[in-house]
Design a protein around this nucleic acid. Structure first.
Lengths: 217, 217
DNA sequence: GTGAAAATGAACTGGTGAGTTCAATTACCT
DNA sequence: AGGTAATTGAACTCACCAGTTCATTTTCAC
């Protein structure tokens, strides 16, 4: 867990950005073959680096995996949170605003790295339960809270009829993501963006049928 | 259950339903430690069986895994399909009828073996993509079709307003399952049945707000 | 340049696990 | 009782891989 030891104090000497190359290659290899099947020799080769260098930088396979997961998840979560900045604040085009947000969320969800992290976390939830909790707490949990806040504001202004904003937020993403995991075989397969868009729009439609205050469009 | 009495003594040697004991033990071990970490020695010990016996019956670790997955999934899928037999046919208590179905579906979904299979399929989707497809085609895909048929009948009788029954079926289960995977950490953690019930009822409520033709209740 | 930290590659250790072999044992059938 | 097939335990082969060691080379700071 000695995470802070990779600062500019010492590791900026010698060859640079080896560390980044290692982490990026590790994500690719882990995503491709899974944790158990990913040998450090393979990761080293893919990163263009010698095996001992990996240990110099990251100590062990487990530590490498933890770093790869947390760093990639943090990046993906950041992008997802950014989507909320374009969330419709007033009733000015509520439906197109929600469709826009839904489309962007689908794009984040189906991002290659995002799917890889999700699949790996799921796959290794038994071996790294703490990692699972950590990533979820810093990602989805916070996102749902933020989305619930936005929905509550709209409801308060009379643009939506919502009693439980957190539940509504969960149902919103449930409707928008709907069968995404199924369509993409849980991320192990490319996904047709057209299909994903349709699912998102249909999800927004159903959401507004249930929670919209006026005619909708 | 039937495996707890298999001691290592010389009592129950010879030909019994070793095969069943092996498959059951293998499911438990796979679910507990994952595919890669499950050694055949461990499975043999847990099944109260010698290692060569496993090879006599099932040939290889991969083949054993495939059998365990398909057989367990078939059983779980069967139970899920049975739920549809109690699907409300007329408008007689549409809401309580749907809530009843939703509750039963949640029970199937959160069944221990069902979750174990789902988690393992997800975890090993990269290594066994064909297995993933096979199980999904014989399970969820058929179920969605059947559910869509029931919904279409209700819509045809004027009890629901549904344009796309398959989409409505997908959204129904999306709403009903909602955050089940999150709540149970994708099945690697026990789940409070009370919470699951609430989610299911809320899902039905939202579904009827969106698709109900009359006041609802 | 020079020197020290970092990187390299190649060989090595230790452990684990899949799959096999085989002689001895056990259960079931007639 | 006798024969046959399944079962058993134990030892074995073979391969893979995490992690280490070390002598050598590269990179960069000064």
């Amino acid at each position: 867990m000695s995470v802070g030891d990779t600062e500019k104090s010492t590791s900026d000497r010698g060859r640079l950005d080896k560390r980044r190359a290692i982490v990026e290659a590790a994500l690719r290899v882990f995503a491709r073959v899974g944790y158990a099947q990913a040998s450090l020799d393979l990761i080293a080769a893919e990163a263009g680096v010698a095996k001992p260098t990996i240990y110099n930088h990251l100590g062990s396979k487990e530590n490498l995996f933890r770093h790869v997961m947390t760093e990639t998840a943090a990046r993906a979560n950041g992008k997802t949170m950014e989507v909320l900045e374009s969330f419709p604040g007033e009733a000015d085009g509520l439906r197109p605003g929600l469709e826009d947000v839904a489309g962007k969320l689908v794009a984040c969800y189906t991002d290659e790295q995002s799917q890889a992290v999700r699949r790996l976390l799921y796959a290794e939830a038994v071996r790294f339960p703490d990692l699972f909790d950590q990533v979820r707490a810093s990602g989805p949990d916070q996102f749902i809270e933020a989305l619930a806040g936005r929905l509550a504001r709209l409801a308060n202004a009379g643009h939506l009829r919502i009693e439980d904003p957190v539940r509504a937020a969960n149902q919103f993403i449930a409707l928008v993501y709907e069968e995404l995991p199924t369509l993409s075989t849980f991320g192990s397969r490319p996904l047709d963006q057209k299909d994903a868009e349709k699912v998102a729009v249909a999800g927004v439609d159903t959401f507004l049928r249930a929670f919209g205050s006026s005619g909708g469009s």
